[in-house]
């Protein structure tokens, strides 16, 4: 009994090291491109100083589509996501090459201002990060910064509408002036989603939005993602394969900075095209 498992292990290890050697030659398989692309990325390389974090990734995100990005830790999926609204600009050593477009606009064009870009491409982070302000001010902050409301009543409307769409209105409508940080983790994350959609972005990027939440709160966020996908284009990074399977239309599998496979979610989880994808979803590594 013991001997066999040890033999299996060594076989696996051998296989993994083979895989790691082969990764240099991996070509993306599946359907990375979309006919109704909202965002198009071609031959994207990302460097942190001398270290290359993303190798030659090409991917489309279709309009009103939910694309899930999965992969083992450190595979570059979060890095790639943060390129899509230039959040990596804050990291000084980070250098990005390739073509990234939001509809027809080059995101990294020297004349492209990040402020309007981030108004169009919003982001929800891993850890719920409401501002240490009231619930109302949290949601109203984006519209205020961008001057979306000229009157108080308009702002009230945006806040109410956003909270309703984030499924939080019923829970907080009586205490809009109480601090946003006083909510539970799941409520905080929905507040962050409300804050993001208050700016009416076209694309919402979600970086592991449920990793800090309990299963019930996670289920609520997943429902919300399904609802939001009717109006927004969503790219979501997740560690949970079940979550990717539940919420996304297409799934992209990243491995060591390479995009290995993109396919319809159903396909990825039932009949993966690439051996690496299979190895990951069957739990051989990750």
């Amino acid at each position: 009994m013991k001997e066999t498992s040890a033999a299996e292990k060594s076989a696996n290890i051998k296989q993994d090291s083979d895989i790691n050697q082969d990764i240099q030659n991996v070509q993306t398989v599946g359907t990375p491109f979309s006919d109704s692309a909202k965002m198009t990325m071609r031959n994207v390389d990302v460097f942190y100083g001398d270290k290359q974090a993303i190798h030659d990734v090409s991917l489309d995100i279709g309009k009103n589509e939910v694309v899930a990005m999965i992969g083992p830790s450190g595979c570059g999926k979060s890095t790639f996501l943060r390129c899509l609204n230039r959040m990596n600009d804050t990291i000084e050593s980070c250098k990005i090459t390739g073509e990234l477009k939001l509809e027809d606009r080059d995101i990294y064009h020297p004349k492209q201002d990040v402020v309007p870009l981030r108004a169009r491409v919003g982001m929800v982070f891993q850890k719920p990060n409401p501002f240490p302000k009231s619930i109302y001010d949290n949601v109203a902050y984006g519209p205020k910064v961008h001057g979306l409301a000229s009157r108080k009543s308009e702002l009230d409307e945006i806040v109410e509408h956003s909270l309703k769409r984030a499924g939080l209105w019923g829970e907080v409508k009586d205490r809009l002036s109480s601090p946003g940080t006083g909510l539970s983790g799941g409520q905080q994350q929905r507040l962050c989603i409300a804050r993001t959609i208050a700016v009416s972005p076209e694309v919402i990027l979600m970086d592991e939005p449920c990793s800090a939440l309990d299963p019930i709160a996670t289920a609520r966020i997943e429902e919300l993602i399904a609802e939001l996908s009717q109006n927004f284009t969503i790219a979501i990074v997740t560690h949970s394969m079940q979550q990717a399977a539940r919420v996304s239309h297409r799934t992209a599998y990243f491995h060591m900075g390479k995009l290995v496979e993109v396919n319809a979610t159903q396909r990825v989880f039932t009949n993966p095209e690439h051996a690496l994808t299979e190895a990951y979803i069957t739990g051989r590594f990750g």
Binding site: N85, M87, T90, V114, V115, P116, L117, R118, A119, G122, M123, F125, K127, N129, P130, F131, P132, Y141, G142, V145, H146, C192, R195, T196, V199
Partner: peptide
């Protein structure tokens, strides 16, 4: 000041 607060504001498009 926690970096998450900066990220949140930057992500909303604050300058």
């Amino acid at each position: 000041v926690p970096p998450s607060i900066r990220d949140a504001a930057l992500g909303l498009g604050a300058s």
